[in-house]
Amino acid sequence: MDNVGAKLLPFYVVTDVSWSMSGRKIDAANQILPRVVDALAQNPILSDKVRIGLIDFSDDAKVQLPLCDVLEPTLTIPTLAVRGSTSYAAAFRLLRTEIAANIRQLKGDGYLVHRPAVFFLSDGEPTDQDSEWRSAFADLVSDTAYPNVIPFGVEDADGNTLQALIHPSTGPKQMRMFLMNKGEDAAQAITSMAEIMISSVIQSGHSMSQGQSGIMLPDKDDLPTGVTTYTASDDDFV
């Protein structure tokens, strides 16, 4: 097996495609992956190790791009289309089975898989019951191979809801969330979120070859305008 011992750092971009994402917002969301690809194409060191998957969710969730090397020349980046309401539970359930299946297969092929990261982008409140998405999320992060979860909220996404999705929420490797500031343009904010995701992919890839494991996130001072980052214990957002 030629892959024996190869190191992989998986990222899952999980995007809300409910009706409210129509128009410039879904257009901006469709630019996330091409921009990530452009960034990786400029870095031969990171692109050897980074794998990206794309999942969208509405009433149901779909794997739009299975975890892959996005610089493979034959690859076509899918275009997402809006389709219904906003089931966080559907997203978490699919994410859980997808991550487990990917890790099982990659480890079977001899890869050394590092802990995955999930960039979770939403523009609104979940339409499923509170207990339902909370229990689906709890299942997702209770697995041994739980992912780091970094929520990204624009427009009507609720800060308190997204805050509950930060994982790990405490400890030396705690994650953060990124929220659009009130009054900003949501499509522009999604473009800014893409910049943050790219920065995280690059910093985390560096960190992996630096004797550190973990997902790195840009500092508060290095954020694009119109976006603020919060930890799970911050309570100063409105």
């Binding site: 890790i103 480890k107 050394l112 590092h114 802990r115 070859s209 004797g211 550190q212 494991s213």
Partner: peptide, 14 residues
């Protein structure tokens, strides 16, 4: 290193 663990880690004692 990483022999039996589910996920790989680059953490090390130093």
């Amino acid at each position: 290193k990483n022999g039996g663990t589910a996920l790989a880690s680059s953490d090390t004692k130093a």
